[in-house]
Computed example of a mutant assay.
Amino acid sequence: MEKKKIYVLACGGTIAGRAASADDLTGYAAGQTSIDELLEAVPKLADYADVQGEQFCNIDSSDMTEALWLSLANRVQEIADREDVDGIVITHGTDTMEETAYFLDLTVHTIKPVVLTGSMRPATAISADGPLNLLEAVQAASWTDLGKYGVAIVMNSTVHSARFVEKTDTTHVDTFKGRQMGCLGYMQDGRPRLYQQPLRKHTWSSDLAAPKELPAVAVVYAYVGLTADDVRHLAEGKAGLVLAGLGHGKMPEPVWQALQPLMEQGLVVVRAARALGGMVTQVPAYDGTVTADSLTPQKAKILLQLALAHTTDREKIQAIFDAY
């Protein structure tokens, strides 16, 4: 069987990190290894695919920016449109991997597999997890049907949907989880074994596109002591605001009173939750807000930005949240 042609875009992260000693798992510098070095460290890649690499950027993913997202989405789209590419792998730091994956899930329109991977231990560590993660990401991207599932993250032999996945642990390799939604499946014998498929719109079914610039949106975390002035300050100059709300997307009453005149002036407010699971849906008490369903606040921010690039109509934005 002819091997698939897989294009690897390197963005840095822990998988490209180096530390002073093999037992240092936290005091390393991310983004120190080039794409050529990453690929050379896993010679088994050649057994599964014809792999080509490109250094897109080489950063700690805590330094990821919206401008880089826009450039990355455009570059991934260019590569996906090539006839000589069957799948794409993106190496990336884990701190913001779930956000980058979801942004690409919404803005890259392709049926070809797009897989993000990285590591929790630097390349210099004892039992580094990067090489196996990279190998399994390439194996996954070589499986044509994976493209039907949208952008995926492959880490620790587990396949996750970009929409469902969250980083849940600061240092352990088993950090990415789908929580209540679960994972898509697992890597076994060199290929994905999948058990469920996302039903919300993504990649090939998405109508959203990466604009030239993303509208400004703030995320506000609700807590005891959050004041109306805090929210007014964070909302200043923003087109939208996502509330990581209490319980079912609730907020202190003074905060709600402060938000209503801002909403009348055009601020779009999305209610999400700081809870570890569940949905936020419409209630009469917060009429005029958009609800985030099961999206985390950070992913609700991304979807709101892309929605605002298309429309400022609240009902149309809610329809986008219901569809994606």
Rank of each mutant, 00 (worst) to 15 (best):
V159N: 05
R121D: 01
H172F: 11
I35G: 04
S157M: 13
Q52P: 03
R82H: 10
V255T: 12
A285W: 00
P192H: 05
G182D: 02
R200T: 15
L45E: 06
A258N: 13
R191Q: 12
K299W: 00
S71W: 03
Q298S: 07
G240R: 09
S161V: 11
S127R: 02
H109Y: 05
G87A: 00
V114Q: 04
V151T: 14
V89G: 06
Y286D: 08
R18Q: 11
H233M: 15
T312F: 01
A10G: 11
S21I: 04
M279E: 07
P252S: 11
D230M: 12
A307I: 12
L116Y: 15
W204F: 12
E98Y: 00
L208T: 08
D189G: 02
V114D: 08
E40H: 09
D207A: 11
G185D: 07
D63C: 06
P215M: 08
A235M: 12
I35Q: 06
K148P: 14
V217N: 05
Q298E: 12
F103V: 09
A46Q: 15
R274S: 05
L146R: 08
Q305I: 06
E213L: 12
A162R: 07
S62V: 06
T168M: 15
L9N: 13
T227W: 12
V8Y: 06
P122A: 01
D169Q: 07
M187K: 05
G147P: 15
G288V: 14
E54G: 10
L241F: 07
A137R: 09
V115Q: 10
M181C: 08
P297D: 03
L38K: 02
L259K: 13
L214T: 02
T14V: 01
Y286S: 09
K4L: 04
Y324H: 14
D189N: 14
Q196G: 02
A309P: 15
I35C: 14
